[in-house]
Simulated assay, not measured.
Amino acid sequence: MTTGPNRILDEFAKLMTDAAGAAQGVKREVETAFRSQAEKVINSLEVVQREEFEAVRDMAIKARAENKALTARIEALEAKLASLAGEAADEASPAASAKPRAKK
């Protein structure tokens, strides 16, 4: 059994060790409470999760690319249709003017 200053120092060291352990426990409790409150706030703000955001972003990028491709295809088809309509009009014009009209 220790006596004197060593006993006081041993008791003080034991007290500090217990206090450090208690402080770590309090730290964990505070962190848990903070995380819980932060999750409640984020959920109440209806913030989108990163995975959902990235999935929608990828879908939007794909839709834009498809939209550009379809726009180019429509423009090509309209140009082809206009050229065919122009050729049909050119062919119809000389034929119509070559026929004499009958008088009534």
Rank of each mutant, 00 (worst) to 15 (best):
M1C: 04
T2P: 02
T2C: 00
T3E: 11
G4L: 12
P5F: 15
P5N: 13
N6G: 06
R7E: 09
R7D: 05
I8S: 00
L9S: 11
D10T: 08
A13Y: 01
L15T: 05
L15R: 05
T17N: 07
A19N: 06
G21H: 05
G21Y: 02
G21S: 07
A22K: 06
Q24I: 08
Q24W: 01
E31K: 10
E31T: 02
T32Y: 06
T32A: 11
F34E: 04
S36P: 08
S36Y: 09
A38L: 09
A38K: 07
K40V: 09
K40G: 09
V41I: 15
V41M: 06
I42G: 00
L45G: 05
L45V: 01
E46L: 07
V48A: 12
Q49Y: 00
R50A: 06
R50Q: 10
E51K: 12
E52G: 01
F53N: 03
F53E: 04
E54S: 11
E54W: 06
R57E: 08
D58R: 15
D58N: 14
D58Y: 09
M59P: 00
A60G: 01
I61W: 05
I61L: 14
I61S: 07
A63C: 01
A65T: 13
A65C: 00
E66I: 01
N67Q: 14
N67L: 11
T71V: 08
T71S: 15
A72K: 05
R73H: 07
R73G: 00
A76N: 04
E78R: 10
E78H: 08
E78W: 04
K80T: 09
L84C: 08
A85S: 10
A85K: 10
A88E: 05
A89W: 14
A89I: 13
D90W: 05
E91F: 08
E91L: 14
A92W: 03
A92G: 06
S93K: 13
S93G: 08
P94T: 04
A95Q: 15
P100T: 13
R101F: 06
R101S: 08
A102I: 12
K104M: 13
